[in-house]
Design a protein around this nucleic acid. Structure first.
Length: 212
DNA sequence: ATTCCGATTGCCT
DNA sequence: GGCAATCGGAATG
């Protein structure tokens, strides 16, 4: 598939109603969607292929489990808000807040296919060109890689995904149910058994291989 | 004031 | 597969 820059300008942000649904459903629905960012004269577009759901106060693995704090405050905003936090003191991770205000639900964006702005992404990721096929797969294959590639940091925390310069859009790539994989979430120590990670099966852009 | 530890990544063996 | 890097929020003294 071929994407032109002018084409991306026609994509509208997803309506807020998209985010005001069951978090697991929103997580699944985010697969195949596009993340667009226009930042410092750079235009980025990528397609989400892997996410994880975190179920607010009910979920021991969620940052929202113990209620609002200065760090997780934006998790408790209205669905469609961006929550960014610093992970391990090194990497930023980006979430999509879901549900109504105060619930603290969110979906972590874990991996994506780079579509526009590849050269700048590689530069931001300190990957020396040329961009090989392997390099492409490595560009956004992890939550910290995505934010680094797009230049997303805590300044994006609390923003809404409905702006012309920062939005999640429908790329009209509907993912058939049988192509959606389920697994436990990665890197957590609590609620390990829950299958709240969703990914597009056989995608080469996942944070880890899809082993069947 | 101090300690603990994590929704990660990349480099080394 | 193992482990260091590096930061700040949260818990503890």
């Amino acid at each position: 598939m071929y994407w032109s820059l002018s084409l991306t300008k026609e994509f509208s942000p997803l309506p807020q109603t998209f985010y005001l649904r069951n978090t697991l459903l929103v997580a699944k629905s985010l697969l195949g969607k596009g993340l667009f960012l226009s930042h410092k004269k750079n235009n980025f577009l990528c397609q989400i292929v892997e996410v994880e759901a975190y179920l607010g106060k009910e979920d021991p693995a969620s940052h929202a489990f113990k209620g609002p704090t200065p760090r997780n405050l934006s998790m408790f905003k209205m669905g469609g808000t961006c929550y960014v936090y610093l992970s391990y003191g090194l990497n930023y991770c980006m979430n999509v807040v879901t549900g109504i205000e105060g619930t603290g639900n969110a979906v972590l964006i874990r991996a994506a296919i780079p579509l526009l702005g590849l050269e700048i992404m590689a530069k931001n990721r300190s990957i020396s060109r040329p961009l090989t096929k392997k390099g492409l797969k490595n560009l956004l294959s992890g939550p910290g890689k995505i934010t680094q590639a797009l230049g997303i940091d805590r300044n994006f925390d609390g923003l809404s995904f409905d702006q012309s310069t920062f939005k999640i859009v429908d790329l009209n790539h509907e993912i058939p149910k049988h192509q959606i994989g389920l697994s436990p979430r990665i890197g957590i120590s609590k609620a390990k058994e829950e299958n709240f990670r969703f990914y597009i099966k056989q995608s080469e852009f996942l944070s880890r291989p899809d082993r069947a």
